[in-house]
Design a protein around this nucleic acid. Structure first.
Length: 457
RNA sequence: GCCGGGGUGCCCUAGCCCGGUAGGGGGCUGGCCUGGAGAGCCAGUGGCCCAUUGGGCCGCGAGGGUUCGAAUCCCUCCCCCGGCGCCA
């Protein structure tokens, strides 16, 4: 064990306690870990003394003979038993201590708003001119409180993304998918397939142009690496296991992109390290029953382009801002109005010290919904996976950050609502044209409702 | 999946058969030397514990076992290389 949590535990346990309080989590564990650590240190000191003595004896054994030799061997055996016993107590102590340390969340950043849940999230900026239904004006004012957001009143009622996809455009089918695979699965057809591919290419193109290295990662990880990258709670609520094997389907390419450097030591000039992952994401969505049951907003499987940064500790907050800006550029280009929200302490996952969400405006729902999540995990992941920074003899842990660039299904939902016209067609954002024109069968300007479904009705 | 060979510190490599202080080279960092650089020479270059200088323990892919003592012997697993098989 080294550094960060352990160091904080020994040198400044109040730092851990305060952070836990802000997250509305109990602080008892800190005291327990502190006590275990003290006892562990006593035990290891005693063991080291015994081991030293045994090593001395063992050195004498080859030089001695007959009775003296027998005597030494006996003494060494006796020490061996004592050592083994102490090692067992020590192991028990360190295991419990480490289990507690591993369960402790990141120490939150001072700019994170306090509060127990998402109602305490703080919007920090708005972009675009949202289309607001007259009937949803109150909700809009509530969601933009404190900001004077320029908006446009809609006099016709746009369809929700789910109905737009399945009933109007007839290019998606979650009913059929539910028969075969269950709820939260989907078929997408025709223009939506081209749209999906264009979105991925656009996001990849934009992010790689900023120096990010594109990566297709493994879609499964071993448990050991999975727990290096996320906390148990998330793990259990969202990760699918491969039966009979120590393998888990990834919930985001962030996970294999971070585990990729487990055990590595970066030299200072090798940082920052920028990656952009493209992969499917698999999520159980346990505990979300009843939420977003229609359409493809919340599904078990989707494709995502993801930004990942390894940075020097002192530069990570700057990178956090840059990552969210990169994501914003994508949604500005797609002409989707959005707001950036600073997530409250109580709503933060364990790895993150601070998180921004980018939430797109959904006219039919009259609310902003999460499309992007951008976190600074500081040294939480790097500590567990031993990803270090070599600083002239001193060792530090790098900081890791991740941010969605673009998740296809949710972005499609946002396009279907925001670019919907009264006649049921959907305007395709201009930025996507160059990624569509290479395909003969792809739509270029707009998506038009099909006369009949691709599937039997 | 089967057979064979391998995994040693940041990198390469010796040691393994036959158990007894992990050796050499390269790189990097610092120092000496130099007008400056290079060469050369010296030292440092994994983790942990105690401590004032300093001392000690652990560490040879991972975990277990045998032994007074394991890089070395035994078992299980992971990964890499070669061959065979299967396969989009």
């Amino acid at each position: 064990m080294a550094w960060s949590s352990l160091k904080a535990l020994r040198e400044n346990p109040d730092l851990l306690r305060d952070s836990l309080k802000k997250r509305y989590k109990p602080t008892k564990l800190v005291d327990r870990a502190l006590e275990l650590d003290i006892r562990w240190r006593e035990a290891i000191t005693r063991i080291n003394k015994l081991r030293e003595r045994r090593n001395e004896i063992n050195k004498e054994i080859p030089k001695s003979k007959n009775e003296e030799r027998e005597k030494l061997i006996d003494e060494s055996k006796g020490l061996g038993i004592k050592i083994k016993n102490l090692e067992n107590t020590m192991k028990t102590l360190s295991e419990e201590r480490d289990r507690i340390l591993a369960s402790l969340p990141s120490i939150i950043h001072e700019s994170v708003p306090e509060g127990p849940d998402e109602t305490y999230n703080v919007p920090i900026r708005f972009w675009g001119i949202p289309k607001v239904l007259r009937s949803k004006l109150d909700k809009f004012r509530e969601e933009t409180k404190g900001f004077d957001v320029e908006h446009m009143i809609l006099d016709w009622e746009p369809k929700g993304h789910a109905d737009q996809l399945e009933i109007i455009l007839r290019q998606g089918d979650t009913i059929k998918a539910a028969d075969l695979s269950g709820k939260r699965f989907f078929y997408l057809f025709k223009d939506i397939v081209w749209l999906e591919h264009a979105l991925i290419m656009f996001a990849l193109d934009h992010i790689t142009s900023k120096g990010f290295i594109p990566v297709i990662p493994p879609y499964m990880l071993r448990r050991k690496y999975y727990l290096g990258v996320t906390d148990l709670e998330t793990f259990e609520d969202s990760i699918y296991k491969i039966e009979g094997e120590d393998l888990y389907l990834i919930a985001t390419s962030e996970h294999p992109l971070i585990a990729m450097h487990a055990g590595d030591t970066f030299r200072e000039e090798e940082l920052p390290r920028l990656y952009v992952g493209v992969s499917p994401c698999f999520r159980k969505e346990a505990g979300t029953h009843g939420k977003d049951t229609k359409g493809i907003f919340r599904v078990h499987q989707f494709n995502k382009v993801e930004q990942v940064v390894y940075s020097k500790p002192e530069e990570s907050w700057e990178w956090h801002e840059r990552l969210i800006k990169n994501a914003e550029e994508l949604y500005q280009a797609l002409e989707i109005p959005y707001r950036i929200v600073n997530i409250a302490a109580g709503d933060l996952g364990a790895p993150a010290a601070k998180k921004y969400d980018l939430e797109a405006w959904f006219p039919a729902q009259g609310r902003y919904r999460e499309l992007v999540s951008c976190s600074n995990c500081v040294d939480w992941q790097s500590y567990r996976l031993r990803i270090k920074l070599d600083r002239k003899g001193r060792r530090e842990f790098v900081h890791t950050l991740n941010s969605t660039a673009l998740a296809t299904t949710r972005t499609i939902c946002a396009i279907l609502e925001n670019h919907q016209r009264e006649d049921g067609t959907v305007k395709i954002p201009k930025i996507l044209r160059k990624y569509l024109k290479i395909f003969e069968a792809a739509p270029k300007e707009e998506i038009i409702p099909l006369k009949e479904k691709p599937l039997k009705e």
